[in-house]
Design a protein around this nucleic acid. Structure first.
Length: 316
DNA sequence: AACCTTCCCTGATGGC
DNA sequence: TGCCATCAGGGAAGGT
């Protein structure tokens, strides 16, 4: 599922290849995917130039010469580039062992809901089998963007991500730490995978109530969120099932996960088997030893989040 | 206001 | 082999 690191990887792949191009033609498929009538969208987009490709949380934002085109990829949304003269992969295949989906561009299929034909001969394809994703169009006025994102918390890589602000946002919350991290109005960009990873490196049990967290624990969450996400970006995102980048390539972060999807496997830190429970209707993975429920683990913990040279992964 | 539950949707998987 | 139930989950909407 595309969370912040996956969307950022897509953004980085798209930006140099579509910035400055013009949209020649627009084709749409399933109307439910769009937040406005497809006929209107086609009229809004045709002839527009793509000036910039930005991201806030899990949202991808194309800044056009008139208006904004905004994508939320939901769970299975994919944005890929295709050169019509190039060679397409025969179909979407998930390799039974490696999980490899494809390594080449693909032709549009029944799940491809938007095709933008760009003026340099490249097509941008939006594909979403489960249709949990959404595509929005916003007017050019700056306040249309701020209104659209008004309920969203700060992006961990933006200037709005400040210690004082984040710690304040935790005050008075009675939800579990896991539910807090999944709440996009608290911080934008974490999903189920990176929430579990953040709690692991912060040494906090997912069921701990936010209002029982010590100051040093809240501070650890604040510091670990950007690091966990930076690690995901560094490895091109996590490809467990459907996620692919703009070139159709899988990320490699799934090979480096500490807890997510590792139920029964040994903890990378202590060797005790990872536990899976359900919290806030989400599969939740943690280590009973490293993330104890009743006894907070004190200290400023920096372990396990460094690369092979013992350096933190660079922030975008 | 804060929190919780339900729903949307398709493909993969496992039991029989 | 086919059929059916179950599971995965981001976020909106509705309920408490």
């Amino acid at each position: 599922m595309p969370e912040l690191p996956e969307v950022e990887t897509i953004r980085r792949g798209l930006s140099p290849r579509i910035r400055g191009t013009r949209i020649l033609d627009v084709r749409t498929r399933e109307a439910r995917v769009f937040q406005l009538p497809t006929k209107h969208l086609r009229l809004k987009l045709r002839g527009r130039s793509i000036d910039e490709v930005n991201r806030i949380g899990k949202y991808l934002i194309f800044g056009l010469d008139h208006g904004y085109l905004v994508f939320h990829l939901g769970m299975t949304g994919q944005l890929t580039l295709r050169t019509p003269s190039g060679k397409d992969a025969p179909r979407f295949i998930r390799h039974p062992v490696t999980g490899l989906q494809r390594t080449r561009q693909h032709a549009p299929d029944q799940h491809t809901h938007l095709i933008l034909q760009l003026d340099h001969g490249v097509e941008l394809l939006y594909r979403d089998p489960r249709k949990f994703g959404k595509i929005f169009w916003l007017r050019s006025e700056p306040e249309s963007l701020s209104r659209f994102f008004s309920k969203l918390g700060p992006d961990p890589f933006s200037g709005a991500y400040q210690e004082h602000e984040i710690l304040k946002r935790m005050k008075g919350r009675k939800v579990s730490a896991k539910a807090l991290l999944l709440d996009q109005s608290f911080v934008a960009g974490l999903g189920n995978i990176y929430a579990d990873e953040t709690l692991f490196v912060s040494r906090i049990h997912p069921l701990r109530r936010t209002d029982t967290l010590r100051k040093y624990e809240r501070l650890r969450i604040f510091k670990m969120i950007p690091r966990v996400l930076a690690k995901g970006v560094h490895f091109g995102g996590t490809s467990l099932r459907d996620y692919i980048d703009s070139d159709g390539e899988r990320g490699t972060h799934q090979e480096r996960l500490f807890v997510y999807g590792r139920a029964g496997q040994p903890c990378v830190q202590c060797g005790y088997p990872i536990t899976r429970i359900v919290v806030a209707q989400r599969g939740t993975h943690f280590c009973r030893v490293c993330q104890p429920r009743s006894k907070p683990v004190p200290g400023d913990l920096d372990w396990t989040i460094f690369d092979e040279n013992n350096e933190p992964y660079p922030l975008p």
